[in-house]
Design a protein around this nucleic acid. Structure first.
Lengths: 339, 339
DNA sequence: CTGAAAGCGCTTACAG
DNA sequence: CTGAAAGCGCTTACAG
């Protein structure tokens, strides 16, 4: 068994109170006492139990993070930024990889509550009844990264505008027959808003988009591949494709490549996210770049604000939304057509 | 404040002992008492504190995972498998993304100890004095995923043989001027052993490898790009390149592409890992595929064994190594040359 | 500046 | 089958 604070106190010939004080600092302590304690700690190789401390202080310095799919480079990069920011502020991360399983979200939310985490980051974007109930009744601060359809603190980008910009870019470059490989409409931010922005731009410029030009997917590479195949198989004369994620865009590019079509020679592709993969393929991907690092950082900072203002009224805490700016990044996956 | 066990006991008109018993199951309890308790729990929306429970039971059901770089798809996929396996066994994950900073490893190992995690998974491969000291004196079970140069439980593949196989494949396909984009020699498994396996195969087949044909990197895409550039700039007539990671292989492919060279027309590339990116680029990457899912699963299973056998002697616990089988996966990044 | 004691929210022998 | 009480390893008023 490792040493407890009592063992240190005994070895140093002081009270446990004093040992606690030298460990936690703050209060004034005589140098002599401090030295005795430090020596005893060293000798016994003592390291305090954060569990006991958490119980007493009613604060764990733990943040729970629910991430839909950690193997997505976009999400992993946000998580990395979250970890970095949280670590610097003295918080540790409890993570749960949900693999798109909405039911598991509630399970882990409950576990996080039982672990008495100080706050929760919800990267997951789909809502269901149970999640809503948890979020409405819980007293633990939560920050999300998407519009969940209920009042909740969130760090967001303007997905509608991003999609609008992507479509406008294609149109301004002369494309008329434009398809979209969209997300899941149950995701309000990444699904619904991106589709709406796309459609709005098309309408604005007088471009017709038949329903056969819209496919719905789950943001993954393989899905992009499959949906691109469907578009081609159905014989729609597609000039350009807007994908709601970079990964689906990459899948689409691979599909076109495997069918002997050139990107951007035959079809232009624009993605969404600006994750690492956009620069790791050839042609490089033109995409709507999210401020990935900043999203992670802002999420943690906002969450810590909530945690520290836990005594404020609920109302003052529930409605803050931070919008970050996206940016169109030009790769070489889009062609400029002559008009 | 949320309800405590005492509140439930009072509301149900029973002792806290009984409340604890119905929550944890096991002991025989009268149906009547159980019903009263369940009702009270429901009414008060009570959820027990895992912190208090952990303190009392001296078990947190927490596993600490130190991961070098979560944005690496290879590592993220292993982590995903770890999370899945651990979750099914009732363990939660505390993770620290180390971004290749060896000093942070010790910091987080200490935090994990203070959090009284039940076990630690060390994905990081580099050793230093402080890490060694921690590992030698700690009583918390640790499983690594690389040869750290000291006796430690580990889940491994045979990196030497994998590299040997990769080189043999290139040679058997007629390549003679073969370069290697190697890892960091301080990583015994991914750095040293892969280089040694490569050199051994070359020697076996009588292929000469000048020192200018070996470059050392950090497994990342950009590094592969840069090192491929160096190889070409130095004018070595390279026919084929073996990269110690898929990501470096992708970087090399991109570099060749950007310089107008064809893969595999002009240069053949073989990678190592078998991560998702190998299938997500064109040409698809020929690579030494690691059993990624199994590595994560086996790591957790081994760790839980250690945790459950914590009463056994130290000696019986320290030396177990599990070797998993790699496999050469053919993509289309290698050319078969006529001899 | 220092210490004795209560208490954080649980579990678990022990006794009945 | 049920409960009173001790104790897990800390922190923190309170008193001196």
């Amino acid at each position: 068994m490792s040493a407890k604070i009592k063992d240190v106190a005994r070895a140093a010939g002081v009270s446990v109170t004093s040992v606690s004080r030298v460990i936690n600092g703050g209060e004034h302590i005589s140098e002599k006492l401090e030295n005795k304690v430090r020596r005893a700690i060293e000798e016994l190789n003592y390291s305090p139990s954060l569990i006991a401390k958490s119980l007493k202080r009613n604060k764990t310095n733990l943040l729970g993070v629910i991430i839909p799919d950690i193997t997505s480079n976009f999400q992993a990069t946000i998580l990395s930024s979250i970890e970095d920011t949280a670590g610097k502020k003295g918080y540790n991360l409890l993570i749960s990889n949900i693999v798109e399983d909405t039911d598991k979200v509630v399970k882990y939310l409950n576990i996080y509550h039982e672990m008495r985490v100080d706050g929760i980051i919800l990267m997951h974007g789909k809502m269901n009844e149970e999640i809503r109930k948890f979020l409405e009744r819980t007293s633990v601060p939560v920050v999300t990264q998407s519009d969940m359809g209920i009042p909740l603190t969130a760090v967001l980008i303007n997905d509608y505008q991003g999609a609008y910009d992507a479509a406008s870019y294609l149109i301004n470059n002369g494309h008329r027959r434009i398809a979209m490989i969209a997300g899941d409409l149950r995701d309000i931010s990444a699904g619904k808003h991106r589709l709406e922005g796309f459609l709005a731009a098309c309408q604005h410029y007088g471009i017709e988009v038949g329903s056969s030009m819209i496919k719905y997917g789950d943001y993954k590479i393989n899905t992009g591949y499959r949906l691109m195949n469907e578009l081609l198989d159905e014989g729609s004369p597609v000039q350009a494709v807007f994908a709601a994620s970079d990964e689906m865009a990459v899948g689409a590019i691979n599909c076109l490549h495997d069918r002997g079509l050139s990107v951007p020679g035959d079809v232009s592709i624009i993605g969404f996210d600006g994750s690492q993969i956009a620069d790791s393929i050839r042609p490089t991907l033109t995409t709507i770049r999210q401020p990935i690092e900043q999203i992670g950082k802002a999420t943690v900072e906002l969450l810590l604000e909530l945690i520290e203002s836990a005594n404020d009224t609920i109302d003052a805490r529930k409605f803050k939304k931070i919008f970050l700016q996206h940016q169109l990044h030009e790769g070489s996956s889009c062609r400029k057509l002559e008009n």
